[in-house]
Design a protein around this nucleic acid. Structure first.
Lengths: 226, 226
DNA sequence: CCCTTTTGTTACAGCTTTGTTGCAGGTTCG
DNA sequence: CGAACCTGCAACAAAGCTGTAACAAAAGGG
């Protein structure tokens, strides 16, 4: 089920829109001023926002700009409601970055159509991404990004591959030979102690999470929660 | 099929434009003076108007203003044809409200491109083209326009495609091979280092935003906020 | 408690990867 | 046909990573 946030100060209009959206099976959140709207957009991460340009407090254009500047909300599509003659070009163009607009007065049917179109176009573009979590460590392979307790950890190629290899088999013990094969390649010729060196470097960079990498004396290493 | 109204008094130019528009599959209406133009705009409701500024009778600017004041035609996009040096700023700005302009003499190809872009972004049911923002970088694919901190960045075709490809997957790491495939085409044969060269050129042109293009040693590149 | 084995740590020289620049075709446009 | 511009490649410079060795510390084992 999709959630839609309506930011609009005319109570009757809010009621009308909500009623129709809910009838279509959307979950509806409402806000009657800009501040509340921004707050809701951030905390509830709706799938779409309907935003009136004329609002008490912060101007709708400002709200849209702020939404588009924030990482958390930049990808949420925004449909602007505007009275005739307001600066439509700016709204949809560069400066503000709304995804669509509708001129008041509008037909509910048209609004529903646009919502549907936009949701269709923005939803399937979210392929599931595999993100690994071991304790406070989060690994996002697609972004090549590792964080520990929220802080980004900058890893080199080998370190990253090593950590990923351990994280893909959480709790599983892996010998140095196996690690060499998986991370360095099956035809790698070299000292197995090289693994130790990189484990040390990993531990140093991981900070508080260093202890998640366990040494199993005589066998190898494993990555484990707790 | 889209209808385009050409308001222009030079017969040869009308013929040239008509011929090319029809070749592209548009229906073309013509008017050789302002009064006839206004009349046609109202009665035929074309999807787009090409309007010369210098006309016998009513001035082109006046025509545009009238069009934008009338409920029936306010939403019809207008492209202005203007000799160099004429008051371009006013034309495109608020006062007149044209949607785009082209300076005479112009290439037919450019005119066609602009028409296409405008129709794409104004046709109801076709939501406006997505505008991409990564940090201070704004990319408008429909207009082939990139700005960084508000300043326009002039990019070549390859640079633009490369940047767009990175921006469409913000934060996502892409190997040189993937970039070659996406930007240069799947059957491209060549050095992967070519990517590096273009990354350098992009960075140079992007100025302050250059650091948004991150190198991931051993893997590739990614475009990321901050 | 001492000796042996295994693991942790560190420094560094060599190597790999990336950044940068210049240039010779190639293309577009007038 | 010339001028301007774009492209891909090659060559060199710079940056950063890596493996090894050498030594220290820790863990077993008897």
């Amino acid at each position: 089920m999709k959630t839609i946030l309506v930011i609009e100060d005319e109570k009757d209009l809010v009621k009308l829109i909500s009623f129709n959206l809910e009838k279509e099976g959307y979950r509806v959140l409402t806000a009657t001023d800009g501040t509340a709207g921004l707050e809701a957009a951030r905390s509830q991460t709706p799938d779409l926002i309907i935003l009136d340009l004329m609002l008490p407090g912060i101007n709708g254009i400002e709200i849209c700009k702020i939404l588009k500047k924030n990482e958390k909300t930049v990808r949420t599509p925004v449909i602007i409601l505007t009275a005739k003659g307001e600066e439509i070009d700016r709204v949809v163009g560069f400066e503000v970055g709304a995804d669509d607009y509708i001129v008041k007065p509008f037909s509910i049917r048209e609004l529903l159509l646009r919502i549907k179109a936009i949701l269709l176009r923005t939803t399937p573009g979210t392929p599931p991404e595999k993100i690994l979590r071991i304790g406070a460590i989060v690994i996002d392979p697609a972004r090549h990004l590792v964080t520990s307790e929220g802080d980004e950890i900058v890893l080199t190629t080998t370190e990253f591959k090593l950590l990923l290899n351990l994280a893909e088999r959480p709790g599983r013990l892996q010998s140095r030979d196996v690690l060499l094969k998986n991370v360095w390649g099956y035809n790698y010729i070299g000292d197995t102690r090289t693994v130790d060196t990189h484990i040390t470097r990993l531990r140093t960079k991981l900070g508080h999470s260093a202890n998640l990498i366990k040494t199993v004396r005589g066998f190898g290493y494993k990555l484990e929660e707790q």
